[in-house]
């Protein structure tokens, strides 16, 4: 009995150590990924900045799909709301607060739409594929609004003149208009969001979401208003997608309806699946990696990229269906003998 108890406490300590090691490894990797583009040319830095914005979009989806089990094609719609709000509202606001005002409007709109749609669907008991299909419809509608409501959205041509991120209080003001500061703004927003979602997932919220993914009825019988939790995650995820969209418009200076399409939602899903659903940092790293490879491949053949991506995705489903990060962690566990990790054999 005593022996068993002590071996289990050793195991617990080892797990804690293992956890700490993988946390520091992830944090280090993330810091390296974020810092590296600062050494590059301003064009490459802009590409890296856009990659981080799409990583934020993937992260917003991973919180919803990976942690709460709700697959959504609606991320592009909320991304679009953020982007268009900055491009439409931003120029109306004086001083350097345009982007911020647009961003707040976009987040508000995304929260309102996802709150209303989500409330009726989730409390109405819609789950699984049916819920996914409705989110797909959301993106189709958003795309239609972006192209058809030309007097406001600029139609097919889109809008230019979205203001860069800035803040103005009294006489003091600051704007991020050069490549380095734009990159830093995006990198900071992404890091803060990643850390916050990671911290939230480790506590009670994470436990409840795991229980809901395991079996929602069970979680309800434990006293949790599971619909309330799912709705909160859906709304939060939509708000984050709107932030990503707002940052994109603000950094690029324009929006176009291409942004709001199903392609963007699908890309986010591919990035999450590739990085490892539910790992949060996995989809972020995967997005950066995929966009980097896309740049390289497209530089010598534009047509090759979609073919490669499709082939790669099919191969991935067969070879490492759980995604990149779980694959790496499995490999590390296999290659490094257990005793070297301090485990009890």
């Amino acid at each position: 009995m005593t022996l068993q108890a002590s071996s289990s406490s050793v195991k617990a300590t080892t797990q804690n150590k293992g956890g700490l090691a993988s946390i520091s490894l992830s944090a280090g990797l993330m810091a390296a990924v974020l810092a590296y583009p600062l050494l590059l040319s301003s064009y490459q830095m802009d590409v890296a900045r856009d990659a981080l914005i799409f990583a934020l979009l993937a992260l917003s989806l991973d919180f919803l799909w990976g942690k709460a089990g709700v697959l959504s094609f609606g991320q592009a719609a909320f991304f679009g709301m953020g982007a268009y709000a900055v491009a439409i509202v931003g120029p109306m606001v004086p001083n350097d607060n345009g982007a911020l005002a647009g961003m707040v409007t976009g987040i508000g709109l995304a929260v309102l739409v996802s709150g209303i749609v989500g409330y009726f669907l989730i409390y109405g008991g819609v789950r699984g594929a049916y819920l996914t299909i409705v989110t797909l419809a959301l993106t189709l509608i958003a795309r239609n609004v972006a192209t058809s409501w030309a007097s406001v959205t600029g139609g097919e041509a889109g809008l230019i003149g979205a203001p860069p991120p800035g803040l103005s209080i009294g006489g003091w003001s600051v704007t991020a208009s050069d490549s380095v500061s734009l990159y830093l703004v995006v990198a900071i927003v992404l890091s803060v969001t990643l850390t916050a979602l990671w911290a939230a997932s480790r506590g009670r919220l994470g436990r409840v979401l795991t229980a809901i993914q395991d079996d929602e009825a069970k979680a309800r019988a434990l006293g949790y208003d599971t619909s309330g939790y799912l709705l909160a995650v859906f709304v939060l995820s939509s708000g984050l997608a709107a932030i990503a969209g707002g940052l994109y418009a603000s950094a690029a200076g324009y929006v176009a309806p291409d942004l709001v399409g199903l392609l963007l939602s699908t890309q986010a899903i591919v990035h999450v699946a590739f990085g490892g659903r539910g790992t949060l940092i996995g989809p972020v790293l995967a997005t950066v990696l995929v966009i980097h490879v896309q740049q390289e491949v497209s530089s010598f053949s534009y047509a090759l990229w979609p073919l490669l991506l499709g082939a790669f995705f099919i191969a991935m489903v067969f070879l490492f269906p759980k995604g990149l990060l779980p694959l790496i962690s499995d490999l590390v566990h296999r290659l490094v003998p257990r005793r070297d990790r301090g485990g009890t054999a």
Partner: peptide
């Protein structure tokens, strides 16, 4: 809940 630890199963309740 299989994917939670024994302690977390109890905390969740």
């Amino acid at each position: 809940i299989g994917k939670l630890s024994v302690a977390d199963n109890l905390r969740a309740a």
